[in-house]
Simulated assay, not measured.
Amino acid sequence: MHKGLILKNKAIISILLCSFALSSLEIRTPGDINNDGVVNILDVIELVNIILDDSAYLNEADLNSDGIINIVDVIATVNIVLYDTEPNENAFGSNQSFDLLTWNIENFPKNNNTIDELTDIIPDLEVDVIALQEIESTQSLESLKENLGNNWVFYRSDDDSNYGTLSYLINLNEVQINQAPYTILSQYDYQFAWRRPYVLDITHNNTNYIIINIHYKCCDGSENRRLQASEALESYISSYLSNDKVIVLGDFNDLLIDQFNVFDPFLDEPNNYYFTDIEIASGSPAYWSFPGWPSHLDHILITNELFDFSYDTQTLLIDEVFFPNNQSYYDFYISDHRPVGIRFQN
């Protein structure tokens, strides 16, 4: 934090400290700055001293996990003291970031319990937008939306189709939809396996984003179709969205690291495009998005208008976190793909 900002916040922090009586909570790690087993006013004081002294980073002090210790973390700690609000350890997003997922929910709904399972999982993730693939039922997607609450809306690229289509679930608490989603590149239906890219124009915290949800053709033997889909998509972006903050995400059905690379139209333009999950693709199979046949097939691509933003990308290990006793239940009830997420810090 810059010294000038520290001085401006010092008065606010002092008021906060004077406003709270000594209080304690049960043992929990986040917020327990002095490591005495409780979260109370002493931790707030310690946290303020960390900020004012510009001390070394401390994980317990970074309550929103944004890599920065500042006034936001002071407020979060104060809220724990006052309201006993323990941080959600399963959350990927937060109200300090713009949070998106791509999630191929296989043959949705693939099981009678799929909707109920997702109703329990999605609120815990605390995300703003979920780009979905393989959604086979508008009625089932509407039921999931109703379970999630009035702050959620959904869109499906073809409401009348029984085919696994592209869709969106959107949490309106922090975002504004500027235009209903629309499909593009209909002249390339064969290359995209009749799943036309699905475009969403959205605003978060006064920043406009263009999101393109895709699902490339699967399987060996279709590499040329996937390559042609990449060529068509790159041409569209460079022609019509050259100054926009574009995020392309979805089930690309191919590897980022490959001898014959279907993503060359993007990889050959490193000044214009970047796959934010490239480190996942080149890393441990434990974090790949398609665990059943270990491979990483779900990707997130951004354009250079977003290069200077602060962001991070993760594979969400839903199978391990929500089904710890039998991870095969995740595949049985929900999908053979894990979601991959990106969050942009405000």
Rank of each mutant, 00 (worst) to 15 (best):
V321Q: 12
P109W: 07
F290W: 13
N325P: 03
G67I: 05
L317P: 00
L172Q: 13
L101E: 02
I75V: 15
G4N: 15
Y240K: 12
T138C: 05
V248P: 02
L42H: 09
S239W: 03
D264R: 10
M1Q: 08
K110A: 15
G4I: 15
I135R: 00
N173Y: 09
I68D: 06
E142P: 00
F323E: 07
A76W: 04
D201L: 00
N111M: 11
T203A: 07
F92A: 03
R195K: 15
V246M: 03
F98Y: 14
G93K: 00
S14M: 09
K110Q: 15
Y329E: 15
P270H: 11
E86C: 03
Q327S: 13
V74D: 04
D66G: 07
V248G: 01
S242H: 11
T29W: 06
L148V: 08
N326F: 08
S161T: 14
N104D: 13
Y168W: 10
L185E: 05
K3L: 12
L200H: 00
D336P: 08
G4V: 11
S140Q: 13
G37H: 10
N64L: 09
D336R: 04
L7Q: 10
I214E: 05
N150Q: 12
V246R: 00
I170E: 00
W293K: 10
Q314F: 11
Y236N: 08
H337Q: 13
I51G: 01
G341M: 02
Y168R: 04
A281R: 07
L185T: 06
V44C: 11
P324K: 06
I334S: 05
I69Y: 05
P87F: 03
N261G: 10
L241F: 11
R226T: 05
A229M: 03
L233Q: 05
P87M: 03
A21D: 12
E142A: 14
I211E: 02
L101M: 14
K145N: 15
L7N: 09
I33E: 08
D116T: 12
N59A: 11
S295E: 12
